[in-house]
């Protein structure tokens, strides 16, 4: 295994040091592993905090800035942050209007954010949560931990962040964040597994002529394995899963997201197929995003996320944003 690291134990903090050097718009607390918007706390604005395991960059630290998050708490690779980080970040972004935690639905993320939220509430900070669970590959039933939070996290952070920027109260920011999640669905496909630096070898084996369907973002195997196929067929499998769960109609925002090890040219090949699929179902592709936004280290593959837009969501999506990972309108 060759990786651009100094040591497996220092990957997260070494990368945070790099973010601090690269982005003067951020204030990075390397010791406590928290990335703040430099202007935080913004008086009178709802503070947005998210976090999760590292290895998904630019999620979440790359989405800290004007119009999106106020702080992000990266854990170890694929391991949720600890409550201390979330408590510190919550206090650091509380501008008096309350703080929203955006949490991807994984047992570890949920437990650590819950513990932090309880302690913050005891100290008098108003904390609300939006749980993201958009992955249709997992059945939401008594027999699973519920659907995973994946690509829709970017949409929730962008759109809730845009509303918070207008000075909207916490309840409104929660409402819009919850609505974005409810109107979004995702499905992921891997062509090759990723390699966690501490493990030193790929998480699972995949033959040259096999793909893994219904993957998450932590290198865990997916639901099923299938023969490799042209991009058109793979895109159709992914979109069929999305469409079966939430029929495509009206205006849609679509993200084709790279898992970290796939070239952009292949993502555009997939996007062409996805766009044709959307059109074929009679929906209108009005907003799009193609690139690496919610990655899984060096995994090859993609995920597709669809959000059924409303006028309000479109307006908030278009609102100015200035973060390392997303930037427009300013």
């Amino acid at each position: 295994m060759k990786k651009l690291i100094n040591s497996a134990d220092s990957v997260v903090t070494d990368a945070l040091a790099g973010m601090a050097e690269a982005h003067p718009s951020l204030r990075v607390d390397v010791d406590n592993k928290i990335i703040y918007r430099r202007s935080a706390p913004v008086a009178g604005k709802v503070g947005l905090v998210s976090g999760g395991g590292s290895g998904h960059e630019p999620l979440h630290g790359g989405f800290v800035g004007h119009g999106m998050l106020d702080a992000a708490c990266p854990g170890e690779i694929f391991t949720s942050p600890v409550p201390d980080q979330v408590i510190e970040a919550t206090k650091g972004v509380d501008g008096g209007a309350g703080v929203l935690h955006i949490v991807k639905n994984y047992t570890g993320d949920v437990l650590n954010f819950e513990m932090a939220a309880e302690l913050c509430a005891e100290e008098g900070i108003e904390v609300a949560v939006v749980l993201v669970n958009d992955d249709v590959a997992v059945k939401d039933s008594l027999y699973t931990a519920g659907r995973r939070g994946t690509g829709a996290t970017v949409f929730v952070e962008k759109i809730a962040g845009a509303l918070a920027e207008t000075g909207a109260p916490l309840a409104e920011v929660v409402r819009v964040g919850t609505e974005v999640n409810a109107r979004s669905r995702s499905f992921g496909v891997a062509l090759s597994p990723g390699t966690v630096p501490a493990a030193g070898k790929p998480n699972f084996d995949l033959a040259d002529d096999e793909i893994e369907l219904g993957i998450g973002i932590h290198g865990e195997p997916g639901r099923t394995r299938a023969p490799a196929a042209p991009a058109r067929e793979i895109a159709r499998i992914a979109m069929d899963a999305v469409h079966a769960d939430m029929p495509l109609t009206g205006d849609v925002l679509v993200m084709v997201n790279g898992m970290g090890g796939t070239p952009l040219i292949e993502l555009y090949v997939v996007f062409a197929e996805v766009a044709a699929y959307v059109r074929d179902k009679g929906a209108t592709l009005t907003r799009s995003l193609v690139g690496n936004y919610v990655t899984s280290l060096d995994m090859q593959g993609f995920s597709v996320t669809v959000c059924a837009l409303t006028d309000e969501l479109t307006r908030l999506w278009d609102a100015p944003v200035e973060t390392p990972g997303l930037r427009w309108g300013r």
Binding site: G53, T79, V82, D84, Y106, T107, G108, L111, N112, M115
Partner: peptide
């Protein structure tokens, strides 16, 4: 353990 581990196993 709660302060240092993270994930699900830390809180549990």
């Amino acid at each position: 353990l709660i302060r240092k581990v993270g994930g699900a196993s830390g809180p549990l």
